[in-house]
Design a protein around this nucleic acid. Structure first.
Lengths: 124, 124
DNA sequence: ACATATACCTCGGTCATCTATGTCTATTAT
DNA sequence: ATAATAGACATAGATGACCGAGGTATATGT
């Protein structure tokens, strides 16, 4: 199934950080891995990923280093920092909150406790 | 919890259609209803909603009519068309697919059958 | 009478993603 | 040997979604 691209908007940084949680990766590899893990739902474009990686590095969520392949080709590997791991945890929490809220609007039953509802105010 | 606004991007039309499934509503009412149902997660702005409603009407997903309040004020009510109902069903399906794919990338266990995986091709 | 809430609307800015394009190197096909 | 393809990085400009800010007008509360 093809997903309207704007749906993905906003969750891309989280997905990239999630990929790096399982080990250092280079850009091109992330695109393939994301495509594979999502069963072809997310076909991230290079024009999206590379600028995003630069932004994540600027914010110190990831660091990068160059590494040679056996063939002599150079790759730029990215590594998750502890700050990036914290950010991932935050983004995952935000993601849970978001999907719970959408499901609530769509009218799906929500398991109690999920929405962290404030206790109902006393009606005088 | 505050949600980064770009997360919502793309799912807004679905949410609006979902609201109208429960009966005709006017714009201002939808904003309040969305805020209420989502426990203040979605605070849709007028600058977002009104142009969106016009677009939905243009695509024949909704129709509109004017109606007076007891006080004499005029409101513009929107009503879901059968085409809009179909669109909502499609968008909900897309939404399920999307969240399943994100969860797969995040590494959460996925209930079997959800991802509609093609049977593994025979490896010769 | 004045402020606030209700109710509609539009314009322009911001930001995320994609399209298109470019570069360079390694591998595969002819 | 040479051409074509795939791998790997990068950026510029277009598109599109959402919001901020502003505008108009009526009803209600003080």
């Amino acid at each position: 199934m093809k997903i309207e691209k704007s749906l993905l908007s906003g969750s891309t940084p989280m997905l990239v950080l999630a990929l790096l949680k399982d080990g250092d990766k280079y850009g091109y590899e992330m695109i393939e891995e994301l495509d594979r893990r999502s069963d072809h739902t997310f076909e991230l474009k290079e024009g999206t990923l590379y600028p995003l990686l630069h932004a994540l590095e600027k914010e110190r969520f990831v660091t990068s280093y160059a590494k040679q392949t056996a063939g002599g080709r150079e790759r730029k590997y990215y590594s998750l920092t502890s700050k990036g791991l914290e950010q991932l945890a935050y983004k995952e929490k935000e993601w849970r909150h978001f999907t719970t809220a959408v499901d609530a609007v769509l009218g799906f039953a929500v398991a109690e406790g999920n929405m962290s509802l404030a206790p109902a105010p006393a009606t005088i």
